[in-house]
Amino acid sequence: MIQIESICKDYTRGRNVVHALHPTSMNFNGGEFIAIVGPSGSGKSTLLSMIGGMLSPTSGRVVVNGQSLYEINVKQRSRLRNEQIGFLFQSFNLISYLNAIENVQLPMTVYGTDRANQQNQAKHLLERFGLGERLDHKPSELSAGQQQRVAMARTLAMGPNLILADEPTGNLDPESRDLILRTLHELCEEGRTIILVTHDMTVSASAHRVFHIDDGYASEDTQNKSRDAA
């Protein structure tokens, strides 16, 4: 479902070329839970941005559901991101002046869904995450765990089949972290692909496949794979 073909990312600073990510190839199938681990500045977020169609690779291709992300125009890529890719961020990235239900409606606002459907879908998702009583609450009126659940509801608003999560549990208490991980696994069981960036080994331990990135070099942790197989 997702093919990453020899993508690399170089940044040029003056005469120096910084290799943020060396040529990397990966293939992910629907329903897989992938963890990408590595130290800070190793290139994890760069890889995630390129998979999400937000950062053009210096070379290589990213194919999502048969569409090569960087061979279509910006508008088509934005549309694909809106419809097929969901993002979950460490710092939630909720919009402070919108309440919970409005934040969840955002991807649908971008898509152009009519108001009634937006409200029904957003309300349904927030209720699913136990926030039915907090629809009108602003992010500042919610706890970190509740904010991440709102962000999770927003991620699912358009029913994406690929979810990219960048340290989604990094700012959460253990209880909230477990809830988010459980939800991500549930989504995975529904057939969605989850790619999660983390440096929390307990989080990566539950993944189907784990990739290590260090200094721009990515490699798959085959031990994890064999453990799965066992």
Binding site: S78, N93, V110
Partner: peptide, 14 residues
């Protein structure tokens, strides 16, 4: 950050 988030959610530059 907010505008970047909107782009991640699929908002076009337009």
């Amino acid at each position: 950050r907010e505008l970047g988030t909107l782009m991640a959610l699929g908002a076009t530059p337009g």
